[in-house]
C-alpha cells in the first residue's frame, strides 16, 4: 500500500510541473499591459517602472519562471491587484464556504441519488424507473445557473420558504472561528443559527448537486441491476432472506464501489460548478471570488485559484484511488 501511494505521488510531480508552466504562461499571454491592469488609469510612469521591477517583468523568461516557482513553493501565491489582499489568506477565509457548499451538494446528491437509483432498479423499465431516469436526465441537462435562478425565484421570492443569498443571516452578526459555519454555530451553542445556516445551504446545494445526483442515481441503478443478477444474491434470496436484508447486506455493499469512484470523479465538476452556483447565490466562497476576479481582471487571483483548485482535484483523486485500492485489493497489483 505504501509503495502504491509513493508511486502515485511521484506520478503527480510531472503534472504539477506542467501545471506551473501552463499557469506561468497564462499570465504572460494575457492581453494588455500589466501596469494598466494593476495600477489603473491614474498611474504614474514612476509607479509603473517600480511595478515592473517588482514583478521582474524585465527579466528573461526562464528567470521569471524560476521566480514564480520559488514564490509559489514558498507559499507566496500573489496578491489581489485591486485591494492588495494576499491570495493565500483570502483563499483560506473563503474556502470553508466552498467546502460547505460542496459537502451540501454531495449530501443532497448521495442522499437523494442512492435511494432514487435503488427504487428505479427495483422495477427496471417500470413507470417509476422511467420517471426517475427522466428526473436525473433533467438534472444533468439543466445548467446550474438556470436551475439556481429558478430555485431563487420559486422558493425564495415567491414562496418565501428559504433565503436566497449568503451563508448565514447577516443580522445575526455571527463571528465565525473556523469558517465552517455548520460547526462554528454548533460550538457556539447557537442552534437557531445552525438551522439558519442549513436553510441557507439548501437551495445552492440543490443547484450544485443536481448533476452529481443524476450521475449517482444512474450508477446506483446500474450497479444494483448488475449485482442483483449475481449468483450470491440469488443464493441469498433463495435462502429465504428478507428482501430488505438482501438489499442492504449484499446488493448495496457491492454497489458502493462504483458510487465511491463517481463521487471522486465529480470533485472537479463540483469545484467548477461552485463557480457559477456561488455567483447566483451571493455565496462567500472561492467560486464567487474567482468570478469577481475575472470581472476585475484580477489575474494573480485567477491564476492562483486555478492552481489551488487543480491541487485539490489531484489530492481528492489520490484519496479516492487510495480508498478504492483499500476496498479492492486487486487494483494494487496492476
Amino acid at each position: 500500500m505504501g509503495r502504491y501511494i509513493v508511486r502515485r505521488l511521484i506520478a503527480a510531480i510531472p503534472v504539477l510541473i506542467g501545471l506551473s508552466i501552463l499557469l506561468f504562461a497564462y499570465i504572460r499571454i494575457l492581453p494588455g499591459d500589466p501596469c494598466v491592469a494593476i495600477l489603473g488609469q491614474h498611474r504614474t510612469p514612476e509607479a509603473c517602472a517600480a511595478l515592473r521591477e517588482n514583478l521582474g517583468l524585465d527579466l528573461p523568461l526562464w528567470e521569471q519562471y524560476i521566480r514564480y516557482l520559488t514564490n509559489t513553493l514558498s507559499g507566496d501565491l500573489g496578491a489581489s491587484v485591486i485591494n492588495s489582499q494576499p491570495f493565500l489568506a483570502e483563499f483560506l477565509t473563503r474556502f470553508p464556504g466552498t467546502v460547505e457548499l460542496t459537502i451540501g451538494a454531495l449530501v443532497f446528491a448521495l442522499g437523494a441519488g442512492i435511494p432514487l437509483g435503488r427504487i428505479a432498479a427495483r422495477k427496471v423499465g417500470g413507470r417509476v424507473d422511467g420517471l426517475i431516469t427522466g428526473v436525473s436526465l433533467f438534472g444533468v441537462s439543466i445548467p446550474v445557473f438556470v436551475l439556481g435562478l429558478a430555485l431563487v425565484a420559486v422558493f425564495g421570492v415567491i414562496l418565501e420558504w428559504l433565503p436566497t443569498q449568503g451563508r448565514i443571516d447577516a443580522r445575526a452578526r455571527f463571528d465565525a472561528t473556523s469558517g465552517l459555519l455548520l460547526i462554528d454555530t454548533l460550538f457556539a451553542g447557537r442552534l437557531d443559527l445552525f438551522v439558519d445556516v442549513v436553510r441557507h445551504l439548501i437551495l445552492p446545494s440543490i443547484a450544485l448537486g443536481s448533476i452529481p445526483l443524476a450521475i449517482i442515481a444512474r450508477i446506483t441503478r446500474a450497479s444494483v441491476i448488475e449485482v442483483v443478477n449475481e449468483d450470491y444474491v440469488r443464493t441469498a434470496r433463495s435462502k429465504g432472506l428478507k428482501e430488505k436484508t438482501v438489499d442492504n447486506r449484499h446488493v448495496m455493499r457491492n454497489a458502493w464501489l462504483p458510487v465511491t469512484t463517481v463521487v471522486g470523479l465529480q470533485a472537479g465538476g463540483l469545484l467548477g460548478g461552485a463557480v457559477l452556483t456561488e455567483t447566483v447565490f451571493v455565496w462567500n466562497g472561492v467560486g464567487r471570488w474567482v468570478v469577481d476576479a475575472i470581472q476585475n481582471r484580477d489575474y494573480p487571483i485567477v491564476q492562483s485559484t486555478i492552481l489551488v483548485f487543480a491541487l485539490i482535484f489531484l489530492v481528492v483523486n489520490l484519496l479516492v484511488d487510495i480508498g478504492y485500492a483499500l476496498l479492492n485489493p486487486k487494483i494494487r497489483y496492476q
Binding site: P14, V15, G18, L19, L22, Y26, I29, L30, P31, G268, G269, L271, G272, G273, V275, L276, V290, I294, R297, Y299, V302, T305, I306, F309, A310, F313, L314
Partner: peptide, 24 residues
C-alpha cells in the same frame, strides 16, 4: 498522458474561462 493530466486537473469551466480571458 501527463499533458492531459495537467489539463484534466483544472475544472473545465475554469479552463475555458482562462482561455477566453487570455485570447479575448
Amino acid at each position: 498522458m501527463r499533458t492531459t493530466d495537467v489539463f484534466l486537473s483544472i475544472p473545465s469551466i475554469l479552463l475555458a474561462i482562462g482561455i477566453v480571458t487570455a485570447l479575448g
